[in-house]
Design a protein around this nucleic acid. Structure first.
Lengths: 327, 327
DNA sequence: CATGTAAATGTAAACGATTTCATTTTCCTT
DNA sequence: AAGGAAAATGAAATCGTTTACATTTACATG
């Protein structure tokens, strides 16, 4: 493996000069620059990031924490992050935590060991105390999932408002018996979305019905199936369901179909996230579109800013209600 | 940031001893080991991977090349790779190439720059010449998608046999007019699966019909929709479709439903890959299960072997036909 | 107690880049 | 041609580890 010394020797200059050429500094005569460039080509030289990283005390790697790689919602965000990262010569290390603290710690260690320059956390189950502690010494951004008290900058949408709009839509097309398929209330977004649901009902004078709110442990397809069974079994059956995730909604869709009921005639369904698959179901799913790609790019930019030592502010992005066949 | 020097000073030993404690070498007295461990705790010391990586000339990072992060097929493989990687203190850098040579090169450069210790390529569109060249100097494994001539070790399944089994299943349940929804023939797996299709037909004396073979540009949902439209428009309409990817099959499913036909009564559908979503569709999809997780772990182990300088052999894993509602 | 051997520890040189500061070269001015 | 300022280049330190080799320590043996 050829190194910078050998290039310097071949070109008849010092390593400092080679380094300057490598980094495009303009204090190099074009004559010597050419000499160096030829030497680089002759020797097939590729500068080692290992040396450079040590010297610069950086790894040029972002850590991205996601609960599950199988949830398509995150993929689009990741693409956004990646775009920004690559453009600034960063790379991303994808870390699936499975909401498992042990795995989480493996990845946190990575930043302590200087293997990563910063973290973008999208894990709602992340140990917020650990994260806070880490944020004192390292650059961290929360994306989509966040915790205000932590003081860690975040990028997200207005969950309360989005949820309000979704439920209002159901009300406007004539529904009064609207179920909420929520995830665990320990998550901020779950509480926010429930508040939006509540506000929409109140505003239209629809009485509150505890039975209409079902909590699921996770956001997966199967959990949607299970939850909808409970909903369909309610005596005064709801005519509409608002699910806080597309995967839940798709699970519901499938189960409603299976039970012989028709979507949207018997039961209307609204999802949340606008994942790719939400347009592939039968019927296609009305859903709240989060600007996922944008969220990714913003998070990426925020992290770079933070790494550079700047103060960064949290950002709230706009969402959108996408009307499709399920309502 | 505290370094090994400071720990050594605090513990009253040399850096060599600290390093030995860090790496669990047994030539250290338990008395001094304890001294060192206390110093580490006192100073909150975390060894820097940057120094260590430079010294060891390694990055402890795997590069994983996938065409598209959105295709769930790859996710399961990645989980397998990750499992092995973590257990051996490696981390994975996920690289979505979009089958774009430019992006591919960005990532290839990473291994040249020592930012990665090896590559697992799953991209069928990878530039095989570049890969071959790279494989002379660096550790590379092909996973799922491969090229025999390249001489680069691979792990995959027997595509021809899998395809044969899928088509045979359709024949056995009474179908004679079986369409093949294939991807571009430039891919080895596409040619292999077509051969299996052909063999099954021949073996059962079913005449070949060129019209029944449709090629799609990509493996996405929309491509399945488009392709199935062509198939349904054929005069002598097929009663069964074998699609070489679940996403294609799911697209077909949706479109067949939309056209008022029934699956499997009017048209039976078989997919390939057993992605998570294939059990969420209506009806659920009969498909070929590839041992994706296993493929990942094997690929990971092969790569580690290769990095260590061993000779590694290619591996063919078993597949499985999963019967569900669509046939 | 001296001696030899094995075990424990230390010294210093890598690894491969960047960068500060010192030195040399260039080139303009008189 | 001499002098001086500015530009180009070089020498050497530095980043934080690991490890080959040298040295010291511990301990058993005669």
């Amino acid at each position: 493996m050829t190194n910078i010394q050998q290039v310097a020797k071949q070109a008849g200059v010092s390593v400092a000069t080679v380094s300057r050429v490598l980094n495009g500094q303009n204090t190099v005569t074009s004559k010597t620059r050419i000499k160096v460039e030829e030497a680089i080509k002759d020797l097939n030289y590729e500068p080692s990031m290992l040396g450079r990283n040590l010297r610069n005390s950086e790894s040029r790697i972002f850590l991205i924490l996601i609960p599950s790689i199988s949830n398509p919602f995150y993929l689009e965000i990741i693409k956004g992050i990646e775009h920004v990262a690559l453009s600034q010569n960063y790379n991303i290390l994808l870390c699936e935590t499975d909401s498992n603290p042990e795995k989480e710690n493996i990845y946190f260690d990575l930043v302590k060991k200087k293997m990563a320059d910063g973290i973008i956390s999208m894990d709602p189950a992340v140990n917020i105390e650990t994260l806070k502690e880490l944020a004192e010494k390292y650059s961290i951004i929360q994306c989509s999932e966040y915790n205000v008290d932590s003081g860690i900058p975040y990028v997200s949408i207005d969950n309360e408002e989005a949820s309000y709009r979704a439920v209002k839509h159901l009300i406007q097309i004539g529904h009064k018996k609207i179920a909420l398929m929520n995830s665990d209330e320990k998550f901020l977004y779950a509480r926010q979305r429930e508040m939006g649901y509540q506000r929409a009902l109140e505003e239209h004078g629809i009485p509150w019905n505890d039975d209409y709110i079902i909590y699921t442990k996770q956001l997966g397809f199967e959990h949607g199936q299970q939850a909808v069974k409970k909903i369909l079994a309610i005596q005064d059956r709801p005519t509409a369901i608002f699910a806080v995730s597309d995967l839940l909604a798709i699970g519901a869709l499938k189960e409603i179909n299976a039970s012989g009921l028709h979507v949207p005639n018997d039961v209307a369904v609204v999802g949340f996230d606008k994942i790719d698959f939400s347009s592939m179901t039968n019927p296609t799913l009305t859903t709240i579109a989060q600007p996922m790609y944008k969220m990714g790019t913003v998070a990426g930019e925020m992290l770079i800013d933070k790494i550079r030592g700047n103060v960064v502010d949290s950002v709230i992005l706009n969402h959108e209600l996408v009307l499709r066949e399920s309502t």
